[in-house]
Amino acid sequence: MQSIYLDHAATTPVHPEVLEAMLPYFSRHYGNPSSLHAFGRETKIAISRARDEIAQLLGCSPAEWMFTGSGTESDNTALFGAAARYGREGKRHMITTKVEHHAVLHACAQLEEQGYDVTYLPVDTTGRVRLEDVEAALQPDTFLISVMYGNNEVGTLQPIRDIGALARERGILFHVDAVQALGSIDLKLSELPVDLMSFSAHKLYGPKGVGGLYVSKAVTIAPYLFGGSQERKRRAGTENVPGIVGFAKAVQLAVAGRSEKVDALEQKREVFLTGLTEELGPEGFVINGHLEERLPHIVNLSFPGTDTDTMLMNLDLNGIAASSGSACTSGSLELSHVLQAMGLSDELTRSAIRFSFGNVNDLQQLQEASRRIGTILRRVRNK
């Protein structure tokens, strides 16, 4: 039985060209970038070249780009860095949403323990934030708004430009988690009303263990990690040179031909959903999230009459890799905080599966996946 990987929102395989770019920095070019000798200068140049390439592709200054160890670290650096910087001025309030990634939500919870005040905005039934709710939540001491670009569970896009314009008007920092958006959305950072934006390499066919954070030149945040003077004293620690080189190559490949890749993902989504409709009928599943303002590679479906853990087990047994989009704790799946925030019924929340497509999928795979899912559901529902 052919295995079918439909969990690209969790991670993607490293692109062959990315791996090829990285390999020399595991073996031939191994110097510490902080060393003053030729070996160190060689890897230091590689990091600078990668920074320049990413900055050019994403429309920012190289000085505005810092490398981190992950998307989670990028989110944490933005939130804790802004809080430390503005907390000294007596500003203790920040705004986020109920549907953020746990890298933001758990960081906010920690900041609350440190005495900061956090407002968690509601979303509508599609997972979108209302601009009027953002505005209503503003307080005199609000220093930061943090809203993700595209949701990692349901794919819904947020009104980033509108929220950013409001933040600029009020003199408030705006952070965006764009981990899922890079490669699907045209990002020109200098043209967006955004001060801080987080990224991760392994979501776009790059290596795990390396991320990025855009920090506008108009913004100063306190360091999150302390030690050496790497990343202009903003992020201490010896740089992951192979990962950084691979990240730059991954961004290059993601940006090149982005429109064609998005079209291909849309076609894969359509084939998958059409196949499911033929197998199950239009009432056999429910699409969760916004139908238009969404990422092209993520589709979250509920299958009434079954439950998430049963479906995931059966999918795995039938060679299909998918996800609930929620955390696994003590061997049992927690209900999705995103779907709960959207106000979906228990029946829909408890039967939701996230499928996410990528370049390892062809149309025949998606047709076969639909067929297998149909077989699974008929068996499970008949029981």
Rank of each mutant, 00 (worst) to 15 (best):
E112H: 00
V118I: 12
P122S: 15
G127Q: 06
V123Y: 12
E132W: 08
G115D: 11
R128Q: 08
R130G: 09
V118Q: 05
P122Q: 15
F143N: 11
D117Q: 08
V123G: 08
E135P: 13
G127A: 10
T119A: 15
H106G: 02
L111F: 02
A107G: 04
P122A: 15
A103G: 06
T142M: 12
H106Q: 04
L121E: 08
H106D: 04
E135V: 12
Q139C: 08
R128C: 11
T119P: 10
V104E: 03
G115A: 08
D124I: 11
T119E: 15
E132D: 14
L105Y: 02
Q139G: 11
Q114W: 02
A109C: 02
L121Q: 07
L121M: 08
L111Y: 01
D141F: 13
V118T: 09
Y120R: 05
P122G: 15
D117V: 09
D141A: 12
D117F: 09
Q114V: 00
L131Q: 06
R130Y: 11
E112V: 00
Q110V: 00
A136F: 07
P140M: 12
V123T: 11
D124W: 13
L121T: 06
Y120V: 04
E112G: 00
C108N: 05
R128H: 06
L131S: 06
G127R: 05
V129M: 10
Q114Y: 02
R128E: 09
V134Y: 07
D133E: 15
A137T: 11
H106L: 05
R128F: 04
Y116I: 01
G127H: 09
Q114H: 05
A103D: 03
L105T: 01
T126H: 15
R130A: 10
V134D: 12
P140T: 07
G115V: 05
V129N: 09
E112T: 00
E132F: 13
A103C: 10
